[in-house]
Computed example of a mutant assay.
Amino acid sequence: MWAVYADDEFWRSQMSWFFPDRSRVRAGVHPHDWAGRPLLIEPGVRALRQIEPLWRQMSILCDETHPPEVVATRTIELLARWVGMVLPTFLSVENGQHDTQPPWRPIDGRLTDPAAIGHIGDAIRMLRDRMAEPWTVGTLAREVSLSRTHLTRMFLLYAGAPPMRFLTEIRLTEFTRLIEETDMSVARAANAAGWDDPRVASNWFQRRLGVTPTQYRLAPHPFLEERVARRTGEDEPTG
């Protein structure tokens, strides 16, 4: 499962372009109908694996190292590719059955070297399984018997980010999960995700979500809280 947090104004404006025919879109999903609450879509595991590098590249764009024009244009490009891959999940049942194969094809996406893909797969599994270790590009390269240069090149091609940036994303995802799903302190959650300094974890978290971990815990899902409160009120017996 991926939890995607998008700017409200940006999401509405872009989805309006992607879905010009409101009648073909699932109820409540079109930006003219969307109430701002979280949306759950189920594109399937295969699609999630394909779009994971796109989301990772989008998240990297927001690290304040790129000019705003580059961030805007690249984000729109990646978002359009993502929508194209999961388009049927946004359409109504009747319309979602037509033309489910996305028209876009990557130029450099062919898997021409199975051995190299195997090495990258091993490296990704190591980082995920052992994210708390003090990894460097050198130590990871030695683990999978590749040069640092070749390892970095292969990560950029198949994972969408350099090895250590990929590791940061893995740690950030786990840190966010711990903040949301457990009562661990920020320091303990940061340590469990692989950061010795909780300030580093909090800084990455704030870059991603716009609030600190503590602020997020106070109001993680305001729209959901409103809905739960409303339903609770409706379920109470009336005299």
Score class of each variant (00 low, 15 high):
A72I: 05
G138K: 13
A47K: 12
R208H: 08
D197F: 04
V29T: 08
T232L: 14
V211D: 01
R24A: 10
A201E: 02
F175S: 05
V211R: 02
M126G: 01
R142D: 10
Q57W: 02
F18D: 06
R125N: 13
P38N: 08
W204I: 11
Q101D: 09
Q14H: 10
P38I: 06
A189V: 09
D122N: 05
V4Q: 07
S13I: 14
T112F: 00
W11N: 08
A115T: 15
P163F: 06
M1R: 09
A187M: 02
P43Q: 01
W82M: 08
L78A: 14
W195H: 05
A193H: 00
R217T: 07
R177P: 00
P213V: 09
Y5L: 12
Y158M: 12
L156Q: 12
L79M: 14
M15W: 03
P67S: 07
P68K: 13
P88Q: 13
R12K: 11
T173A: 10
A159V: 15
A219P: 00
G233K: 14
R227E: 07
P68E: 15
T232V: 13
V29H: 01
G96S: 06
R153P: 01
A3D: 04
E9F: 00
D7G: 14
F10D: 09
H150V: 11
F205P: 02
E225K: 12
G160C: 07
S145E: 15
